[in-house]
Simulated assay, not measured.
Amino acid sequence: MPERDLRTERIQQERKKWRKDHPFGFFAKPNKAADGSLDLHNWTAGIPGKPKTLWENATFPITIAFPEEYPAKPPKIKFPAGFYHPNVYPSGTICLSILNEEQDWRPAISIKQLLLGIQELLNNPNPDSPAQEPAWRAFSKKKDEYEKRVKLQSKQYANKD
């Protein structure tokens, strides 16, 4: 079982680093298991939209699931199903090279780096890597429709100040 110990140790290190130093407006924490203990392998997190973007004044929820093979394999990070973005599949799965073990995933990538990368992707979609047709088509060809849908979605996740 040394694999599992490696995964848990790494997640504990990541959690400690995150608690000491995480970007303003972000949150990430392990879920609670049915017995009240922490489920280190499944987290809930939030990514704030950057100021002065269509995504501002909202915090977008994600889930993080660490596979058995973590950190050799990347965590599975998802938005809620139906999240509107050109690089997010209808299931909520995020299409981003640093989350893909076949592309740019490296075991040294931290939770902080992943969440900052996802925040960056929100406002800067990659048109060459579409994951959902309607958002990709609107982003590519109908900017005002795209912006209207993003603003609507941002209202749905608006920060309650």
Results as ranks from 00 to 15, higher is better:
38 L>W: 07
38 L>N: 12
42 N>G: 00
44 T>M: 14
44 T>Q: 15
45 A>E: 07
51 P>S: 14
51 P>H: 12
52 K>S: 15
55 W>N: 09
55 W>K: 06
57 N>W: 10
57 N>R: 15
57 N>Y: 13
57 N>D: 15
58 A>N: 10
59 T>A: 14
59 T>L: 08
61 P>L: 09
61 P>R: 09
62 I>A: 11
65 A>H: 08
67 P>K: 01
67 P>A: 06
69 E>F: 06
69 E>W: 04
71 P>M: 01
76 K>C: 07
77 I>S: 05
78 K>F: 13
79 F>Q: 12
80 P>L: 05
80 P>H: 05
81 A>K: 11
81 A>W: 04
82 G>L: 02
85 H>G: 06
86 P>F: 14
86 P>N: 14
88 V>T: 08
88 V>I: 09
89 Y>L: 04
89 Y>F: 09
90 P>M: 05
92 G>V: 03
93 T>Y: 06
95 C>T: 07
96 L>T: 03
97 S>A: 12
98 I>C: 05
98 I>G: 00
99 L>P: 05
101 E>P: 09
104 D>F: 00
105 W>L: 00
106 R>T: 07
107 P>L: 03
108 A>F: 06
108 A>S: 08
110 S>M: 02
110 S>V: 00
111 I>M: 14
111 I>N: 07
111 I>R: 06
112 K>H: 10
113 Q>M: 09
114 L>Q: 03
115 L>D: 03
116 L>S: 12
117 G>L: 08
117 G>K: 09
119 Q>L: 02
120 E>T: 12
120 E>W: 13
121 L>Q: 12
122 L>T: 05
123 N>C: 15
